[in-house]
């Protein structure tokens, strides 16, 4: 690492110290809400400082198991996220290979038109999308939650670039054996693209897991909510008289799986997110 070679003067120590303090500040809110989640909600209404004292209780988590729809929402989120991730990767690999290797007429024009789609934010088409799914009577279905997320051009873009970087000679040999184009793709080229697929999969997974606006307006039946929307719905009550402890237990419960996954796969997650951002 480059910076190792330079000495560590005073200013360097100040920099490190301030970042360490910042890191503590970064962590405090997390610790705080975990604390709240172990407190009786009514006690918090009467005395806001109760969080610093005993007794602590598991009742919010117990309530969570009984009342909340978190289980259903978690299931919905998993269905949507996993399906979307698998489909995005599959479709992007196919299209990426197509754009990289098949020289159909007008290919470059079509590819540029697709690239221009990178500039269309989903937020700008949300109203007409809602109308379309109205017309098809398809809101509150998994299809509605999944399909619009498959149209983003980022995956195609990523895979096209990756396939182009793979030398053509690797495929030439197979071509002599008269293998079909799909077999060449499937058996020879695709396995080489696994790193890019992993990047795309992780990025899509995160993106889809955290999607908010589209599920908010499309999933209007509580049993079709995703985790994000379900949690959003319950927190409209945060400044009502009670339930603070319960809400924080929800946040902890819902946030934990992603944090654990992240800690296990952080190298890949960071690479995927950074790679996607740079594109």
């Amino acid at each position: 690492m480059a910076s190792k070679t330079i000495a560590r003067p005073m200013s360097e120590q100040i920099l490190v110290a301030s970042v360490v303090i910042l890191a503590i500040a970064w962590m405090v809110p997390l610790v705080w809400i975990v604390g709240l989640s172990f407190k009786n909600s009514l006690e918090l209404v009467v005395d806001p400082n109760a969080v610093f004292r005993f007794p602590y209780t598991l009742e919010n988590y117990a309530d969570l198991m009984v009342t909340s729809n978190l289980g259903v929402w978690l299931r919905n989120t998993l269905i949507v996220t996993v399906t979307q991730t698998v489909l995005v990767v599959a479709i992007s690999c196919l299209a990426g290979y197509g754009f990289a290797r098949i020289d159909f007429p007008g290919r470059n024009l079509v590819f540029i038109l697709v690239l221009m789609g990178l500039a269309i934010p989903q937020h700008a088409v949300i109203v007409p999308l809602h109308k379309m799914f109205n017309d098809w009577q398809m809101h509150n279905t998994f299809q509605a939650l999944i399909l619009p997320g498959l149209a983003g051009p980022f995956g195609v873009f990523l895979m096209t670039a990756y396939f182009r970087a793979i030398p053509l000679e690797i495929e030439e040999a197979a071509k002599l054996d008269n293998a079909s184009r799909f077999r060449i793709f499937w058996e020879i080229t695709l396995p080489l693209a696994v790193p890019a697929m992993a990047t795309l999969a992780i990025f899509t997974f995160l993106h889809s897991w955290n999607d908010y606006l589209w599920p908010l307006i499309s999933a209007t039946r509580p049993e079709m909510y995703t985790l994000t929307v379900g949690l959003a719905a319950t927190q409209t009550n945060i400044d009502q008289s009670e339930g603070l402890g319960y809400l924080m237990a929800q946040a902890v419960f819902a946030g934990l799986p992603m944090l654990i996954l992240y800690i296990f796969f952080q190298k890949y997650v960071v690479r995927a997110v950074a790679g996607a951002a740079i594109r």
Binding site: N134, Q137, H139, S218, T220
Partner: peptide, 11 residues
């Protein structure tokens, strides 16, 4: 808005 959305989409 959710109720109206449900009506519009026939659910």
């Amino acid at each position: 808005e959710q109720l109206a959305g449900r009506i519009a989409s026939g659910d």
